[in-house]
Design a binder for these strands. Structure first.
Length: 352
DNA sequence: GACCCGTGGGG
DNA sequence: TCCCCAAGGGT
């Protein structure tokens, strides 16, 4: 049952040679890695995000900003708009800060895990993955996939998050000096395609013979604490339209959807009594409610249409955005959905 | 360690 | 429908 680390490494790399996923930001097994800019860009996008969601964004960013100097020179708003829909917008702010920091040192990333870790937006995982994949450093890469694979391989009973220490220690015993980048990606591929969270395919697993968890119920690992229920908040957003344009604001740099273009809203506080007043004295018409799920709460956003005839006294700073280019506004998903709702409502009025 | 921070897909 | 989850980082 137990096997040497070398046995496990060899079995996994052999499996990877035949079964590696082909992804736009990845080189085939055993071949030279993509340049660090591409590795870094993909790794940041992949934080808490599926490969399918990342692919079109990765292509778009690389096409628009082929080198890190191009990204470093971009306008903040353009980068935020290009990130719209991908979520966790602090990543985009950190991406730009990191690009500028690297450009300032001549465009070359630090080539070590410790050096990478000091850059904005690179935490334990991303620093290790870029070091291993782009620079061939024998860094131990632990993401949710590796966590699951290792917890099962060693049948770690301790629940998360306390188990992270033991999981990392176990993972470190496996990390190879040769092909550390391939090894890291192999572990992640195994977790994504074989050792999945539900219904793991143990019959296809190259590590099945060495897995302690398999003799129990592999789905048990890693043991996780119960999840808290998501509360429901409510709020209002204001749709003000004139001359074929809609009034948009840019949200503050920090907090929810920070730095993103948006509809004006009332702040959707926890109790649903948002404190921001409407940007115009009425009349307002209730268009409908958009329910949206965020990471830690659900939101019922009531969409209010300004139905008066004098927009000249708007009390907010913002910009008038052409409705026929609303898809280019870079609205995060919540407000993109609200905008579609408002435009569909108008379509119905015209049809009726 | 706890909490904040998005979104879309799959079972 | 609902719940879970994903190549996590910052504070």
């Amino acid at each position: 049952m137990d096997a040497s680390a070398e046995t496990v490494r060899s079995a996994l790399l052999a499996w990877y040679d035949d079964h590696a996923r082909r992804l736009p930001w990845r080189s085939p097994p055993g071949s030279p890695p993509p340049d660090p800019y591409r590795v870094w860009l993909s790794e940041v996008m992949l934080q808490q995000t599926t490969t399918a969601a990342v692919a079109p964004y990765y292509a778009k960013f690389l096409d628009r900003w082929p080198r890190i100097e191009d990204l470093a020179a971009a306008e903040d708003g353009d980068v935020m708009a290009a990130w719209a829909g991908l979520g966790y917008y602090a990543r985009a702010r950190n991406l730009l800060a990191c690009a500028r920091a690297v450009a300032a040192r001549g465009g070359a990333f630090p080539a070590t895990e410790a050096g990478l870790r000091a850059l904005p937006g690179l935490g334990t995982y991303t620093a290790a993955s870029v070091a291993a994949i782009a620079f061939g450093e024998a860094a131990t890469v632990v993401d949710a996939n590796v966590e699951r694979v290792v917890a099962r391989l060693f049948a770690i009973e301790e629940p998360l998050p306390a188990a992270r220490k033991a999981i990392r220690a176990a993972a470190e015993t496996l990390t190879p000096d040769e092909r550390p980048g391939d090894f890291a990606q192999a572990m992640m591929d195994l977790g994504a395609t074989i050792c999945t969270a539900r219904s793991p395919r143990c019959l296809l697993c190259p590590l099945a013979d060495y897995c302690r968890g398999r003799t129990q119920e592999p789905e048990r690992f890693p043991v996780k604490p119960a999840r808290k229920a998501r509360p429901l908040r409510s709020g209002r957003a204001w749709w003000v339209e004139a001359g074929g344009k809609v009034f948009l604001v840019t949200r503050p740099g920090k907090g929810m959807l920070g730095g993103m273009r948006a509809l004006p809203d009332d702040g959707w506080s926890a109790r649903g009594d948002g404190d921001h007043l409407p940007p115009l004295d009425g009349p307002w018409r209730h268009l409908g409610t958009v329910r949206h799920g965020f990471s830690h709460f659900d939101l019922d956003l009531q969409l209010m249409l300004y139905s008066g005839d004098n927009c000249s006294r708007l009390s907010l700073n913002g910009e008038w955005w052409p409705l026929d280019r609303i898809d280019d506004a870079g609205l995060p998903t919540l407000f993109a959905r609200a905008a579609r709702f408002a435009l569909a409502d108008q379509g119905e009025d015209q049809g009726a």
